[in-house]
Structure formats: C-alpha cells, structure tokens
C-alpha cells in the first residue's frame, strides 16, 4: 500500500526549465537549474531562506522583470514548448496563463466581487452575466462561496487573513490559468485556515499544475507529489515526494529536512 496508484501514467511536463542562471545585478541568484515541472500535480519547492526558491518561481511568470537589474543570463524556460523569455512573447498573455498567489495576501481595496472581476475586466470582459458566473465559480472553487455569498459587495479588506488569502486564490483562478504559482501561501495563516487552503489545493490539482514554495516540511510532505530542494541557488535534489522525504539521495537534503542544517 505504499503507492496508492502504481499504474498511474507518467505525467506530462507543464514547465521545462533547462540550465538557467539568474542574476540580480551582479549577484547570482540561480545557478544552472534544470527541472521539469509535471502537469496537474503539486510540486513543492523547499530550502532555507535566500536559497532562490522565490526567485525561481517568479521567473516562471516573469514577475522578476519588475526588478531593476534582474535578468536570466543563460538557459530557457519553456511552457507548452514556447520559450517564455523570447522577445516575441507578450508577458501579459503569459501572466494570464500562469497565475500567482503571494505570501502576503493582497486583495485590492475594492469589494469582493470587484476583486474577482478585476482580472476579467482587464481582458475587457464586460458582460455582467459572464462576470457573475465567473465570480461564483471561482469563489466555489476556492471554498469561499458559502462564507461570502451574502456580502459580495462589501470591502474585501474586512475578511479574515485566511479568507483574504482564499480570495486571492479565487481571484487568480477567475482568469483560468493553467499553472498556479504560490509563494508560501499559508505562512501568514493559522492552522485552520492553512488546512482549508491545503484541502483546496489538493482538489485543484486535478485541473491545474501547482507549484508551491513552502517553509513547512510537513506541508510539502503532506501535499505535494514532487519536491525540489534548493540550496544557495542550486537545485540539490528533485524527485518524488515520498522518496525525497523517506530516503533522500542527497545528504544535504536529509540534513535540511530533519532540521540539522547549519
């Protein structure tokens, strides 16, 4: 009973990362990272602070473009076969397909409805019926509908921390990306809110590829199908979660996950 589904098919790859180097100005943040993120599964990125996991995840939707002096100097990142750093790629279209949820929840200072409708309005979708349906669908998918259906037009900042984070997830889901990037989504949440978000992610993975950065070993072990361990900008180990946590190949990995680092 070790592998619940030993005959499951080998998953396709959602994101192919080949030998990338990433610099912030003169500082090297990522060193020769090669990784294939499988489709419709949860991949978690673990590692100590400053090891490059957030940098890596922000490369996948080019949010690092916002930072002065940040650049990918080598290698390619391909999504659906397309190199996302190609000059012809419209970064806005990329971000519609690769959604992101941040560590600190950042709902806009608008109503809950408007928050979710935001992404749709960005795409010039104006019809009220379409937006209404999308809002309900996203909130249901984010397991938030029952809690907020009576106050859709109240300010989003009146929600609790866990609800705000689920709202941000719903907001990202509303534009129907194929890949969801999550940067420590539960770090600011209490255990109950964390449990709800984890349940949500487990259910989402059927339809979305999820990449999650986490500091919690238990969360990575509980939730993810694959785990990548980053250290000092390098990818130390990447593999099946049960293998990595039960019997890691790299002694660094073992030291980190058993808390014997440093």
């Amino acid at each position: 009973m070790t592998d619940p589904n030993p005959n499951r098919p080998i998953p396709e790859t959602a994101v192919e990362v080949s030998s990338i180097d990433f610099y912030y100005g003169k500082t090297k943040a990522l060193d020769d990272i090669t990784l294939d993120i499988p489709k419709n599964q949860i991949t978690s990125l673990i590692g100590p602070s400053g090891c490059g996991k957030t940098t890596f995840i922000r490369c996948l939707n080019r949010m690092n473009d916002l930072i002065e002096g940040a650049q990918l100097t080598r290698g390619t990142i391909r999504i659906s076969g397309v190199d996302i750093y190609d000059k012809r790629v419209d970064v806005i279209e990329l971000r519609k397909k690769v959604g992101m949820v941040f560590q600190k929840s950042n709902p806009f200072p608008m109503s809950i409805y408007e928050n979710i409708a935001y992404g749709l309005r960005m795409q010039s979708i104006r019809k009220k019926t379409i937006i209404d349906e999308a809002v309900e669908r996203s909130l249901r998918n984010a397991a938030l509908w029952n809690e907020v259906k009576d106050r859709l037009h109240s300010n989003a900042l009146g929600l609790s921390g866990g609800q705000q984070q689920r709202l941000c997830i719903a907001r990202a889901l509303a534009i129907e990306p194929t890949i969801m990037l999550m940067d420590e989504p539960c770090s600011a949440l209490d255990p109950i809110a964390t449990a709800r978000v984890e349940e949500l992610l487990f259910n989402l993975k059927e339809n979305y590829t999820i990449v999650i950065v986490t500091h919690s070993m238990q969360q990575a072990a509980r939730l993810s199908d694959h785990t990548a361990f980053f250290y000092l900008g390098k990818l130390e180990e990447f593999g099946d979660t049960s293998k990595l946590f039960m019997n890691p190949g790299n002694p660094q990995t073992e030291a980190y996950i058993s808390g014997r680092f440093g």
Partner: peptide, 23 residues
C-alpha cells in the same frame, strides 16, 4: 501605495497603465 497591489494586478495579466489607473 503598497507594492502588493501593483504585483497583484500585474500577476493577473494587467498592463502597467491599467494597473495604475485601476488600483
């Protein structure tokens, strides 16, 4: 204005001007 708003909007596929105008 918290940087989180800008990042949130850009991550949803917003252009820079739309982000400024709406948020």
């Amino acid at each position: 204005v918290p940087q989180g708003f800008r990042e949130g909007s850009l991550a949803l596929g917003g252009s820079k001007w739309k982000t400024i105008r709406r948020v």
